[in-house]
Nucleic acid binder design. Structure first.
Lengths: 161, 161
DNA sequence: GGATACATACTCGGATAGCTAATGTCCGAGTGTGTCAGG
DNA sequence: CCTGACACACTCGGACATTAGCTATCCGAGTATGTATCC
């Protein structure tokens, strides 16, 4: 069980975006250059974030992406779901359906106690991620590294006409 | 992010084992037949459980697997870790190391706040799984389906000489 | 000088290869069982 | 009848194909910008 590397890229990229002037969009190429990432593949992740309503995209020159919502209303869960998809990690294949004494009419994804236990753990995981907003993360980073916002902003604005 | 299907097989199989007479081992073929699973592949999962000390294996005729510990001391986390491996889902690639202002001596897997948030969620997930023992699961199933233990035991003993 | 039409360059967006890891299968090493011969 | 050795069949264990999903890349559609031309 392994989470896509794109999640890490997406979270860090969204976080960096909170330190940029909100009005204008920033291109994939520039976002990718910040960490030396492959631009085309990062673009793929940003597309997913856009489809999820986390980012908004604008085409053409001076185009790119920007946060579509306030950082207060963007959680880590939102980002993870946007990249990884909504399905939970444990996918009940209804093994009980293939065993003896099975009832064809029963949906074992709900009634199976193993499935329930796994879902409970999954929910705990999601609860933690949902409790962590981009704004809170931003605030914590600024507390720990007060110079980070300026560093990020300067790096993005340099060479900009 | 998707958990291996082997986890579902492993949990249900271990659970079934709690309803069998503890003394003797039961072969992979018989365990697989219970749910119509491919025996060789299930064997692979049982090997992993054996390496993790959850099952003990015995070769030769009358051989097979049996629970190596009391169901009270086997948690869902133990089974998941045995199959999926000990690594957490989110693997920090230390993106910050490749950005501006990085300190080559810093281990960002610990200091990066994104990584910390992800780890916190992962720990919540593990906590839930660790709190769920095989014995508790067994008891809940017996409460909901009082005839399940006999059903399982009969199915496994039938055709046995 | 101002407005308009146009060419241009830049951006996202989805369609297309490459690669790692999970899935599924196979055969060999080891071992307890049952049998058969001998005493 | 009892003992011992032996052949056998059954089991785990790891090595070998196959498939699905993540990773990476490329090219086309669309658009705002800047320019040149015309009024």
């Amino acid at each position: 069980m392994r989470m896509s590397e794109g999640v890490e890229w997406a979270v860090h990229t969204c976080l960096n975006m909170t330190w940029l002037p909100g009005g204008e969009a920033i291109s994939t190429a520039r976002l990718a250059a910040f960490y030396g990432l492959p631009a085309a593949y990062l673009n793929k992740q940003l597309q997913a974030l856009s489809r999820a309503g986390i980012l908004s995209s604008v085409s053409g020159p001076r185009g790119g992406f920007r946060l579509a919502r306030d950082p207060e209303s963007i959680t880590l869960l939102d980002v993870v779901v946007a990249i990884e998809g909504p399905d939970e990690a444990f996918r009940c294949e209804q093994l009980l359906q293939r065993g003896p004494g099975a009832d064809p009419a029963t949906d074992y994804r709900h009634s199976c106690l193993v499935s329930q236990s796994m879902r409970q753990a999954d929910l705990a995981w999601r609860r933690e991620l949902a409790a962590r907003t981009l704004a809170a993360l931003k605030a914590d980073v600024e507390r720990a590294h007060p110079d980070a916002p300026a560093l990020v902003a300067n790096r993005f604005l340099e060479g900009k006409r």
